[in-house]
Design a protein around this nucleic acid. Structure first.
Ligand SMILES: [Zn+2]
Ligand SMILES: [Zn+2]
Ligand SMILES: [Zn+2]
Ligand SMILES: [Zn+2]
Lengths: 170, 170
DNA sequence: CTTGTCATGTTATTCCATATCATGTATGCC
DNA sequence: GGCATACATGATATGGAATAACATGACAAG
């Protein structure tokens, strides 16, 4: 959107999404990182996949599959659900995008590259989404799982509430 | 599109927490507790609502809204989605039932009465669901939220993995 | 009896997700 | 080059989740 030159130092451990930042840089950096990682890992970041990732980075919030599909159609790609879902599957599978279960929607990863189990903060007023790191298996849940012999493979951690912006406005 | 019968892929397999227990007692106790609490709080546990809660307690696993709807129809209640969703809204709102976001399904609460933010362990093999308590705002996520000024109102904590039963079988 | 409120029922539509088949395209082997 | 294979894409169709919009029934105050 705005191409202001106020480079926000991207602290890789800080949650992203609730504060202003240089968005163009943010998008370009992430796209570049994705391309590099794909090249390195022998993954194919094809046009559709790249476009979907770019859209999600651009929006910087969670988009439903059909919103993504609309944008794909506008960009001249296929217009049927599987086109979007396949691209999303690839991106989620390889850690470039996360699914927000609470919203049935998808958001670009804010900490690309590193292995991590993300946690999200979702504003119920403005639908902003911020990603933080989590260590779910370390806490009470991990203890409970060990106690009953449940083997955790993946966790969904999503907090719903009010973002700082919406709090100010009230 | 006419009023044909709906195919119901009902899988009536074993109910599950992750350990055996006296199920009839379990159901009766929970139903009784719900009735008591509703009476105390001036809530109306109407026939549909009671039936839905009873079904979920009986199954002791997560059921999708349309599976619930099928059972409601069989029991002589309304057969359209809003009937099920309204009853589920009431039960979730008042803490008798939880929604499993990962499955888009609903499960009866295992710790009725007490205020709690539940965490769930979901087996990806057999769809068993166990409820544990969580303290999400106490850990890393809580710290991240305070750091950015996000006000947490509710949390979704769901772990996906393999339950002890399925681990044994392998 | 009238009014207001809540629960229920019905119709219809929108959104999320996947199964299936057909077509295209890169890549590696002959 | 010609061909086999895997994989990516495209299009059709369908199923499942969720809600909008509207109508009816029960019931308690006034
Ligand atoms: Zn991430
Ligand atoms: Zn907000
Ligand atoms: Zn509970
Ligand atoms: Zn299992």
């Amino acid at each position: 959107m705005t191409s202001e030159t106020h480079p926000i130092p991207v602290d890789a451990t800080a949650p992203v999404g609730f504060h202003k930042h240089d968005h163009d840089t943010c998008v370009q950096t992430a796209l570049g990182a994705a391309e590099a990682q794909c090249k390195q890992d022998g993954l194919r970041l094809t046009p559709v996949r790249r476009k979907v990732l770019e859209m999600l980075l651009q929006e910087h919030r969670a988009l439903g599959a059909y919103a993504i599909l609309d944008r794909l159609r506008d960009a001249g790609f296929g217009s049927q659900p599987p086109v979007a879902y396949r691209a999303l599957d690839f991106l989620v599978q390889n850690g470039f995008v996360h699914k927000i279960e609470r919203l049935n929607a998808f958001v670009a990863c804010s900490h690309p590259g590193a292995e991590h189990s993300p946690a999200f903060m979702i504003c119920r007023k403005c639908d902003a989404v911020a990603e933080a790191k989590s260590a779910p298996a370390k806490g009470i849940l991990g203890a409970a799982a060990r106690a009953v012999g449940f083997e955790i493979e993946r966790t969904v951690v999503e907090a719903e509430g009010i973002c700082p912006d919406c709090t100010e406005k009230a």
